Simulated scan of single mutants.
Amino acid sequence: MEQLRDLHEEWGHDNLKGLAFEEYLQQSGDQYVLHEHEVDIVSYVKKEIYLHRVSMMDPNETVKENDVADMLVCTQAILSDCDMLLIEAKWANLGLVEAVTDKLDTDAELEIYKDFEEFHRDLRGVSENQRKSTE
């Protein structure tokens, strides 16, 4: 990931996307064009999570195994259209999920929580509302 961070700093996010989605690039004259809507959604979300995470890394930061697991959780939350996601504060503060979901053409909204009590309170409220609507 540190090598990707260096590439991101040198070439920028869009050029790094070209590398990540190389199989979807189409040549148009002297340039290569990426039509993001043609990319498989699973591949797109997974790679975008990684690319955005790379762009948010501190210069001396190293990625730990649990960070990769957290990125996979974020990926699954986006792909499964869940409504609520409780994650570590560092992920919520970075806006990692929003960086990816903002680019998706969807009306689904994923609420990000970093506080368990707030998450639990809202989850109970949703549960109560669903129960009442089925009665």
Score class of each variant (00 low, 15 high):
7 L>D: 13
75 T>E: 10
61 E>C: 02
56 M>A: 11
68 V>T: 14
52 H>C: 07
20 A>L: 06
53 R>L: 12
113 Y>G: 03
97 V>W: 01
63 V>K: 05
133 S>G: 00
15 N>A: 14
129 N>W: 06
43 S>F: 07
30 D>V: 07
125 G>C: 06
78 I>Y: 01
40 D>V: 02
106 T>V: 05
43 S>N: 12
53 R>T: 09
130 Q>F: 10
46 K>H: 15
28 S>C: 11
86 L>E: 03
6 D>K: 15
68 V>E: 10
123 L>W: 08
31 Q>M: 06
120 H>R: 15
56 M>L: 15
120 H>I: 08
66 N>W: 09
117 E>Y: 11
110 L>D: 07
84 M>D: 14
119 F>M: 05
29 G>W: 04
72 L>D: 15
92 A>Q: 14
127 S>V: 12
44 Y>G: 05
131 R>E: 10
2 E>Q: 12
89 A>C: 02
115 D>A: 08
56 M>R: 10
42 V>G: 01
48 E>R: 11
42 V>H: 03
80 S>I: 05
90 K>L: 07
129 N>A: 14
61 E>Y: 01
50 Y>E: 15
130 Q>D: 08
33 V>R: 08
59 P>E: 08
130 Q>S: 07
35 H>N: 14
133 S>A: 13
128 E>L: 08
39 V>L: 00
38 E>L: 13
13 H>G: 00
114 K>A: 09
85 L>V: 03
89 A>I: 04
129 N>Y: 11
123 L>Y: 10
116 F>M: 06
35 H>I: 09
32 Y>W: 14
100 V>Y: 00
31 Q>F: 06
7 L>A: 11
49 I>G: 03
83 D>Y: 13
19 L>G: 01
26 Q>G: 05
107 D>Y: 09
27 Q>A: 08
69 A>E: 10
101 T>P: 00
76 Q>Y: 12
78 I>S: 02
42 V>Y: 05
96 L>D: 01
89 A>V: 05
